[in-house]
Design a protein around this nucleic acid. Structure first.
Lengths: 133, 133
DNA sequence: CGGAATCCAAAAAGATACTG
DNA sequence: CAGTATCTTTTTGGATTCCG
């Protein structure tokens, strides 16, 4: 759904009848993998595309591509293709994207607290290597 | 998509391999209309179902029903059917839901700032009655 | 390597009708 | 009033292939 939120917001912006600021914010960070990408780029510095793929093993290339594209369109992420062979593309967070980090951090804290309350915070990470997204 | 985020999170919780707290938070507030609902319930007090419908004119009954159901399941919202004829159902925010309000408010502020920067903040609300969600 | 294009299965969402 | 059920259309997402 979340992407439909984004589309609805885009349309409202285009028509100048946008009147719900929190929707704008949500539309920019929701969508599959988006806050994961933002979080990684915002805390660990720039990543190449193939590195993001490794960081998000459950996401398909198609989806990562699509979400990065949206993030770039929304001004939250920079895209920088390098003239190497084969091509590498570096993604980094923009100042605007950086300004969202307090909100993402707050979500991280709230989620951690909630997990603790559910007594799942200390859970074992069973299956060998767990992908920490 | 966002609902798929929620499902993925539910599954992780069920399997005890949940390790990404911010996803938990996002999964609870993203999804069409959810933060609108939470915001209304959290700031204006309880609402009946039909009132929420009026507040979200662009949302179908089916969707509002579905999202309220998820919010109740997640413990963010209370559902209280009244024994009237015809039936009325009152929805209110829970303490847990209330604890999300700082994040939602931060999103509201960020979005407002962003709109101002885009010089769309003072835009006229053209089309007669604008649904303020 | 990073992406775009295509095809196809699955999921989401609108419209409508029905019920306590 | 507040849903539920059914049907149909639209949208998504995976898998695969091709290209610079």
């Amino acid at each position: 759904m979340t992407d439909s939120v984004r589309e609805a917001v885009q349309e409202k912006l285009a028509n100048g009848i946008f009147n719900c600021p929190k929707e704008l914010t949500l539309s920019m960070i929701s969508g599959k993998w988006k806050i994961n990408i933002l979080y990684h780029l915002g805390t660990d510095g720039p990543y190449y595309f193939y590195e993001l793929q490794k960081l998000l093993p459950a996401a398909s290339r198609k989806e990562i591509t699509a979400k990065l594209k949206e993030l770039v369109e929304d001004g939250l992420v920079n895209r920088k293709p390098l003239k190497t062979v084969p091509v590498k593309v570096q993604y980094s967070i923009t100042p605007l994207g950086k300004s969202l980090m307090p909100i993402i951090d707050a979500m991280l804290k709230w989620g951690q607290q909630r997990l603790d309350d559910l007594q799942l915070g200390q859970v074992e990470f069973g299956l060998g290597k767990v992908k920490h997204e």
